[in-house]
Simulated scan of single mutants.
Amino acid sequence: MERRYASHPNEVKQFDTDRLRKEFHIPALFTPDKLELVLTHEDRLIIGGAAPVREPITLETDLKELGVSSFLERRELGIINIGEHGTVRVDGTEHELSNKECLYVGMGAEEVIFTSSDPEHPAKFYLNSAPAHQTFPTAKATLEEADSSALGDIKNSNDRVIYRFIHQKGIQSAQLVMGMTLLKEGNMWNTMPAHTHPRRMEAYLYFDLPEDAVVIHLMGQPNETRHIVMRNEQAVISPSWSIHSGVGTSNYTFIWGMAGDNKRYDDMDPVSMKDLK
Rank of each mutant, 00 (worst) to 15 (best):
E2R: 09
R3P: 01
R4W: 03
Y5D: 15
Y5G: 08
Y5Q: 14
A6H: 11
H8N: 09
E11A: 09
K13Q: 14
F15Q: 02
L20F: 01
F24G: 04
F24K: 04
I26R: 15
I26A: 13
T31H: 14
T31W: 03
P32C: 06
D33Q: 01
D33W: 03
K34P: 00
L45A: 05
L45Y: 02
I46H: 12
I46E: 14
I46T: 13
P52V: 09
V53F: 11
V53G: 08
R54A: 09
R54Q: 11
R54P: 00
I57T: 05
L59F: 12
D62H: 00
E65G: 06
L66S: 05
L66W: 01
L66N: 08
V68K: 12
E76S: 06
G78Q: 08
I79P: 04
N81V: 00
N81H: 01
G83Q: 00
R89Y: 08
R89W: 04
V90Q: 11
D91F: 00
T93Y: 09
K100H: 12
E101H: 08
E101Q: 15
L103R: 01
G106N: 15
G106H: 14
I113R: 13
S117L: 11
D118E: 08
D118N: 10
P119I: 02
P119K: 01
E120I: 00
P122G: 04
A123T: 02
K124G: 06
F125Y: 07
Y126W: 10
L127M: 15
N128G: 05
S129E: 03
P131V: 10
P131Y: 01
A132T: 05
A132K: 13
H133N: 13
A139D: 01
K140A: 10
T142D: 03
L143W: 07
A146Q: 05
S149W: 06
A150K: 13
A150S: 07
D153Q: 09
D153N: 13
I154T: 12
I154N: 11
K155W: 05
S157I: 06
N158T: 10
V161S: 10
I162Y: 02
Y163A: 00
K169R: 13
S173P: 00
T181L: 09
T181G: 10
K184H: 12
K184R: 14
E185V: 02
W189M: 05
P193W: 09
H195R: 10
A203D: 04
Y206Q: 08
D212W: 05
V215I: 11
L218N: 10
M219G: 13
E224N: 07
H227P: 01
I228E: 02
I228A: 02
I228L: 09
V229C: 15
M230S: 09
M230T: 02
A235N: 11
V236Y: 00
I237A: 10
S238V: 15
P239L: 04
P239M: 01
S240P: 00
I243N: 07
I243K: 05
H244D: 09
G248N: 10
G248W: 01
T249H: 07
T253A: 15
G257L: 06
A259H: 11
N262K: 15
R264P: 00
R264K: 06
D266G: 03
D267R: 03
M268N: 13
D269M: 06
P270G: 06
P270T: 08
S272F: 07
K274N: 03
K274F: 04
D275E: 15
L276Q: 05
